[in-house]
């Protein structure tokens, strides 16, 4: 327990024996908690690589005796939802098709909004912004049906573009807040200098603000990609079954009542669905935390 000497933390000059006992307790609690958080992931990974006979007789925690990737293949290309038996690959394709335009459109709109709100305030702009932020707290259920009607009138109900529009609308409050706060922190002189040079609204946006705001764009992209990928409610309401995103299809595959429950295939399917946000989370690290911290400011 030599390392306790280096620790110059809050519990500084206490007797050394008690100190190291505290440390053992501390790490003990942390490790137990970590196990609770890791357990479900471990069970899923292990089970998804076992065959069905092994699952029936064996222990859930035991690592697979014979590693097989058959469940993964089946989940991806053969699992059935209703009469369609082309696996999760269809849902994956749909989710990608929904994801890319939704992320692009929502961030484009919100960044321009945030820019207008911080640098080009006009009469009433703050009022609209306040309504927008308060609107983020309204339960979606209150607005669902009227939006169905609006989309039907626009001829977009059931299509991917309808869903893209819905994602852009509901992503707007938090993203606008994010960009508004960022652009407000840009020194005013920079903006004024550009004005003196004759740059207009769009000129300043594209030539000065956009390049400068790249980090916040990354945060916004992380936020939107995970949020839209994980969405279930909008997907199930605003698209038709052949266009269901991956989360909806996953739920239909796993919770279908017919047939024997193939735990290994189901868990492989679940892992496949969770893979993208998980990878983004692990790769982006601090930026992910920044994104949700921004969400937290929204409340």
């Amino acid at each position: 327990m030599d390392k306790s000497i280096e620790v110059t933390g809050p519990s500084g000059a206490k007797p050394r024996r008690r100190f190291s006992r505290n440390k053992i307790m501390l790490y003990g609690v942390l490790i137990v908690m970590a196990l609770y958080y890791l357990l479900p992931l471990y069970v899923m990974v292990v089970t998804s690589m076992k065959g069905m006979p092994e699952i029936r007789i064996g222990n859930v925690f035991a690592p697979p005796v014979e590693i097989t990737f058959q469940p993964w293949v089946k989940a991806w290309s053969e699992a059935c939802t209703g009469i369609n038996c082309d696996g999760l690959s269809r849902g994956f394709g749909n989710s990608i098709q929904i994801l890319i335009p939704s992320v692009f459109l929502s961030i484009l709109i919100a960044s321009v909004n945030g820019y207008a709100l911080s640098n080009w305030k006009f009469k009433g702009s703050e009022v609209f912004f306040t309504i927008l932020v308060i609107g983020a707290f309204i339960p979606y259920q209150v607005m669902l049906y009227p939006i169905v009607i609006i989309l039907r009138e626009l001829g977009l109900y059931g299509s991917l573009w309808g869903l893209v529009l819905v994602h852009s609308v509901f992503g707007m409050p938090i993203l606008t807040l994010l960009f508004r706060n960022y652009f407000s922190s840009v020194p005013e002189e920079l903006f004024k200098a550009a004005r003196v040079d004759g740059a207009g609204f769009w000129g300043i946006y594209f030539k000065i603000m956009l390049p400068m705001a790249l980090p916040i764009f990354v945060v916004a992209i992380i936020l939107q990609v995970t949020g839209i990928w994980n969405d279930f409610l909008f997907g199930v309401i605003f698209t038709e079954p052949s266009l269901y995103p991956m989360t909806v299809q996953l739920n239909n595959i796993v919770n279908s009542v017919q047939g024997v429950k193939e735990y290994n295939v189901n868990m492989a399917a679940t892992l496949l669905t969770g893979l993208l946000p998980l990878v983004i989370y692990l790769v982006s690290g601090k930026l992910f935390v920044r994104g949700i911290a921004a969400g937290a400011v929204k409340g």
Binding site: Y37, L41, W229, N230, T273, G274, P277, L278, Y281, V289
Partner: peptide, 10 residues
């Protein structure tokens, strides 16, 4: 924090 990256469905 990793569970927070996963959807409610998962």
């Amino acid at each position: 924090l990793y569970p927070f990256a996963l959807s409610f469905i998962v």
